[in-house]
Simulated scan of single mutants.
Amino acid sequence: MEWRKVSFGKREVCYEVTLNNLKMIVTADVGPRILFFGFKNGENVLFHDVEEKLSIGEMKFYGGHRFWISPESKDTYNPDNSPCKVEEEKDKISFISFDPITQMEKKLSILEKNGNFIVRHILTNKGKTLYPGAIWALTCIPPKKGIIFFPWGTRGDWQLKKITYWQKWGGSSSTNIKSSQFVPEEDLFLIYPSGEEGKVGTAGYEGFVGVTTDNYTFIKKFNYMEGALYPDDNCAIEVYTSPNFCELETLSPMYTLIPNAEVMHDEEWILLPYKVDPKNGYEVRKILR
């Protein structure tokens, strides 16, 4: 894995990280944010708000991949528009930000495993009091493109399937549970993004969420912790759809962080140059072995 300093869009201080035929661009100007992910000479798998117009108050979305803390609260939207500290080590590069309101430090590290990028999220309580929360890893992808898929059942012989619909949040946002974009297939739950706003989640026992298009298949793989308590009615996987972008979200269990305590959540980013049939769960799971 190698990296070099570059500019990207409106962001002057970024790092282009390459691994085999993969490329990632992370900005240190703000965030941290991963603004690009794809093949070296390919398209951006992520949605990037090039003009940086999307915002809630002073908090800008920027697009790409971001690091939040769940459950969602007013502190979720604290602006993170300040530069990040960059740590360069032999086997990884890290981007560190600090929220003076919550006294929480976020460290986003990029490293390598099995020929893929590992996106590591480390949350540290720098305050003097307890802080409850979970790591929330959100990846923006282009809207109305491809088919989103994730497992929604338990493992083993005793099968249960669960989907949580966000019926109302943020004052005016809601999900139409009868929307045709949500398709509960026998194996994987599928979403055909239509531009509607909505959000769903599930327990996520198998630990993956992805999207497949005519040109590529992108999967985020993580370690689900059996018996742990997750946010939002025990959801480790969440997917948001909207006219501007969709989000593939994974979460860590809930923690109560004592001062100076840290917790970690890893995602393995898998990218293949072809489309898979998400109705065929076996084909998807072969990728993950």
Rank of each mutant, 00 (worst) to 15 (best):
M1A: 15
W3F: 15
V6C: 14
V6F: 07
Y15N: 12
Y15F: 14
E16I: 07
L22Q: 07
L22D: 09
M24I: 10
I34D: 01
E43L: 08
N44V: 13
V45T: 11
L46S: 04
F47Y: 15
V50D: 10
E58K: 14
F61A: 13
F61W: 11
R66P: 11
F67P: 14
P71K: 03
N81Q: 15
N81A: 14
P83V: 06
E87C: 02
E87L: 00
I96Q: 03
S97Q: 05
F98H: 13
D99T: 10
E105T: 07
L108I: 01
S109C: 02
L111D: 00
K113P: 06
F117I: 12
V119C: 07
V119S: 11
R120Y: 02
I122N: 15
N125H: 08
N125G: 07
K128H: 08
T129M: 11
L130R: 11
G133R: 08
A134I: 09
W136C: 06
W136G: 04
A137M: 06
T139C: 00
G146R: 01
I147T: 15
P151W: 02
W158M: 10
I163W: 01
I163L: 15
T164D: 02
S174W: 10
N176P: 00
N176R: 08
S180I: 11
E185S: 15
L188M: 05
L190Q: 06
K199Q: 13
V200Y: 03
G201R: 08
N215C: 01
N215E: 10
K220E: 06
K220R: 09
K221L: 02
M225A: 09
M225P: 05
E226S: 11
A228Q: 08
L229F: 02
L229Y: 00
A236G: 09
V239I: 14
Y240C: 02
S242A: 15
E249K: 05
E249Y: 02
E249F: 00
E249N: 07
L251H: 12
M254Y: 05
Y255P: 09
T256H: 00
I258N: 14
P259S: 12
M264Y: 05
D266V: 07
I270W: 03
Y274P: 00
G281T: 07
L288S: 05
R289F: 00
